[in-house]
Each structure stands twice: as C-alpha cells, then as structure tokens.
Design a protein around this nucleic acid. Structure first.
Length: 447
RNA sequence: GGCCCCUUCGUCUAGUGGUUUAGGACAUCGCCCUUUCACGGCGGCAACACGGGUUCGAAUCCCGUAGGGGUCACCA
C-alpha cells in the first residue's frame, strides 16, 4: 500500500510551492489506491505558531487535499526521536560532540576554503565530559558512495566523503528535523517521499540513519521548485505567500490545482481535470526535472475559461450564498448571467455590476449635448409605448434610428452610460428589457 | 567555492535518431465580427544556450563550455 505524506513546517504559511507538493503527494497516493497523510513538522518551537498551523489546515481544506488519517504533530513524538538518537549513540553510529558555536564557525570557515566537510574531533575521540553541553551527531561513512534512484531526478550518485556528521539531538536535547523526519516517516510507514528539490541533498544524509537502523528505504521523488516570474526562487516579493490569498483574489480552486499540476507536468490538452475523484492518473515520470516559472496571466486565463464552462445554476447559487441580494437583482442576474460571465476573469467581478442591476442605481450623467438629449427623449417615448418584449423593443428602437439616419453605435454607448453608468455591459437591449419599463424610464428621465 | 540538478518561442510545454519548413496553450501584434467590453474566428511574430563529436541522418546519444537553480545550520 502506497503511503505518502505532506510535511509542512508551521514556521510559515502554506505557500504555492507547498500546495503543489501536497497536491502531488495527494494525487500520487490516490492514483495508486494509497493514502495521503499530513504531518506538521513543528520541532522548531520558537518559530512555529498555532496561527500558521491553522493557515496550513485551512489551505489544504480549501484545496480539498484531505488527509486519509488525522494529521500528526512532530512535537508529540519527541521522546521517540530522542530514543532513536541514543540508540544510534549506543550502537556506535553516533557520538557526543562538545564543539562550541565559535569553534564550529571557525571550522566551517576553514572547510569552506578547502572544499571539505567539517569533522568533529570528538568523532574518533569518544569522551564524556561532565557539566558540559553536547550535541549528538551521526557518524557518516567516510568512504564509498550513496546512490538514490529518484523517481524524478533519476539515478544520482554522490561520494560519502561530502556528507557531514549532522546533528541529531541539539544541546537542549531536542531532535532536529533531520532525525525527526526520518523517524516519523518510518513510524508512519511512508513508502514514497515526494517533496521539493531543495531537500534532495538531505536525502543522502537521512538515508544513512535509515541504513543504520535497518529500516526500509522509501522511494524518493524530488520535484522541481517553482520560480517567480523573474526566474528566482518564489518568495514574499512575488506576492501571495498564502494560498488562501488566491481564493480571496477570485481564483477557482479547481483552476489553481490544475495550473499547479501543469507547472512542470506534461498534460497534452487544456482540459480542467477533476482532481478529486481519483479519475486522474498521476504519474511521477511525467514530472519535468527543471523548475518552472509561475505565470499569473496563464492562471487568469484558465480561470476565465473555466468560469464559462460552469453550469449557470452553480454560479448563481454561489453568488446567492456569498452576497445578500434582493429578488429584483437576482431575477435580473438570472437573465443576464450568461452574458456577464463571458466578460469575467474572476467570479467576484460581478460585484461591479450589482449597482446598476439594482433599483438603487441613479446615474450622474449631465453632460449630454442637445442632439443626444433629443435621442434619449425619442427612446423614452418608445419605451413608454412599446410592447415589452425583446423583439419589439429592438425593432422599435432600430426603426427610430433609421428615421433619424443614425447607426446603433450612435445610440448604444449613450444608453449604456445613462442606464448603467458603465461603458461595458451585455447587449443593451437585453439590459433594457430586464431592467423593466418603469426603471428604464426613471433612469432616462434623470438626464 | 565544493557537491548535485537543469537548459525547446517571453512563459508553460509537445517532441525519446528520420513522419518536423520544430506542434500546442498563454502573452503579444494584425485583421474579421460588432451597440460597448468581452467572447469567437482567421493570421503574424517568436525557440532547440554555445562548441565539438557519434551517425547516412541529432532538439533527440556522448563530451566540453556557458548560463540558471538547489544545497553546504544545534531551520525545516
């Protein structure tokens, strides 16, 4: 049984990159009849916050990336992590290191110059110093190579000599991410680790713990990072550091997920796939290896196209629940929504049309010239006498135009601005028809 | 700097040795449609990073170079 996990750290929000990692984990698990799990990596107590945990949970919830089991909190497993660290120590795979921060900094300076990894003198010189703080470090193999057959990156081999003796347990006895993550993955029986490419180097180090403990080695898939439009790593500068901001900005969740999927994944058409009901067959080998740039324009375009494919009833219901609208606006919306939706990129743009759809609307047009005023009067008299249906309305007004030797473009824009206050609306005849005789007369008389 | 990864139009990508004058989508530009704004239709511009090989033949395989990214914490 395939088991994947998304393991965010609540030291920050759920950003777009994290959302994609979660999506890939979810899709891979679901495509293989497996389980998708969530683990909050809150070992950094100082930087983790309840607020961020909620943001992550809410974000995943909005994305409908619901874990198969209740989420785990890494901080609840601390004792286990400590036990493993001491077990490694006891078995000679780890050692106590008494190096101070200053000593370490100095060593790091030197090693950087030489291009070598730092080696603690306590590695081969096992001592127990009373009343002095220590960390527990893993003893990396000095020779040989480590190979990872990554499902995205391919087969990668590194020399073990570049591995540093990473810290397992801090001076204050708290486990590091390097240890905790491995132990938790083992306990949660994670079979496939799908995470950002920025973790690739960690895999070679973490795998040593797994080997020392004789645990099964999970299958890795390190997915490329998403870059901003300028080609650099995505950060706060690029806006929207929280996926929920995309919701606020009016992006449809299905669209966002499909866009995220397409970013670095080969899909041969422009369909918006149903990513919820296990109908999408997600394959790791379709993930590209190179990072891709986040393109808001493409996202927006997908959003607009998607909106137009949505059943009008669904859209109308969403509008009804989101906004408190009276019957009169609702009726008009019911009639005009098919026309309006063609013009929107985001559903929430509809807010801009509520005003003129309502009887509360009054125009403030006052600068019409005499010619146009006369035109408006003519239309007024037509509206007063015509039978109230779309066809009659249109015929009578067009007849009037012919009599005056005018074209629709001479009248359309004027009526539009007077009746709606806007320069762009659906077909003006439809607008007149649905707004109604009395209301139209009222608005036109105002001029 | 060491190690690792990547490199097809501005962007996301198709392409796995001949079917390719390198295809699509977004963006952009032009035209058509037109009562406005859109939609839609038609068309244009635009890419195999560079240099060597291998081969009858290379975007596709190999080697360099350049550029980009990641990582090198008692953060995750």
């Amino acid at each position: 049984m395939i088991r994947t996990r998304f393991a965010p750290s609540p030291t920050g929000k759920l950003h777009i990159g994290g959302a994609r990692t979660a999506l890939f984990n979810y899709l891979f698990a679901k495509s293989n009849g497996g389980k998708f799990l969530l683990r909050i990596e809150d070992t950094d107590i100082k930087r983790s916050s309840k607020e961020n945990i909620d943001v992550i949970l809410n974000g995943l919830n909005w994305l409908k990336l619901i874990p198969s089991e209740k989420e785990k909190y890494q901080s609840n497993e601390t004792q286990q992590h400590i036990d493993i660290a001491y077990k490694l120590l006891k078995n000679g795979f780890a050692y106590k290191c008494y190096l101070s921060t200053e000593e370490l900094n100095e060593m790091r300076n030197q090693s950087r110059k030489k291009g070598e990894v730092i080696k603690s003198p306590y590695r081969d010189n096992l001592v127990n110093i009373k009343n002095k703080d220590f960390v527990i470090r893993l003893k990396m193999p000095l020779k040989g190579q480590t190979t990872i057959n990554d499902k995205v990156q391919g087969k990668v081999i590194i020399d073990n000599s570049i591995l540093d003796d990473m810290v397992l347990l801090r001076k204050d006895n708290s486990p590091t991410y390097m240890l905790a993550s491995v132990v938790d993955d083992y306990n949660m029986e994670i079979t496939n680790i799908i995470r950002g490419d920025d973790h690739f180097n960690n895999a070679f180090r973490q795998i040593q713990i797994i080997k020392y403990m004789n645990w099964p080695i999970p299958t890795y898939a390190h997915i490329p990072l998403i870059h901003g439009e300028d080609g650099t790593k995505l950060s706060k500068r690029h806006g929207a550091e929280n996926v929920m901001d995309y919701k606020k900005d009016g992006y449809e969740v299905e669209v966002l997920k499909n866009y995220l999927l397409r970013l670095g994944y080969s899909v041969n058409d422009d369909k918006i796939y149903d990513l919820e009901n296990n109908t999408f067959n997600f394959k790791l080998d379709k993930i590209n290896k190179s990072p891709s740039r986040f393109d808001l324009k493409k996202l927006s375009n997908m959003n607009a196209l998607y909106l137009r494919t949505q059943p009008l009833n669904n859209l109308l219901n969403r509008i009804k629940t989101k906004f408190n609208l009276n019957e009169e606006i609702l009726d008009r919306l019911d009639f005009l929504l098919p026309d309006l939706i063609q013009r929107y990129t985001y559903l929430n743009e509809i807010e801009n049309d509520f005003l003129w759809l309502s009887n509360d609307f009054t125009n403030n047009v006052s600068d019409l010239n005499q010619e146009n005023l006369n035109l408006v009067f003519e239309v007024l008299s037509i509206l007063k006498s015509t039978e109230w249906n779309l066809i009659e309305l249109k015929e009578n007004i067009e007849k009037c135009l012919v009599e005056n030797n005018l074209k629709m473009k001479d009248l359309g824009p004027i009526l539009r601005i007077v009746l709606t206050g806007k320069t762009n609306t659906p077909d003006i005849f439809k607008v007149i028809f649905i707004i109604g005789r009395n209301e139209c007369i009222k608005r036109l008389t105002k001029v």
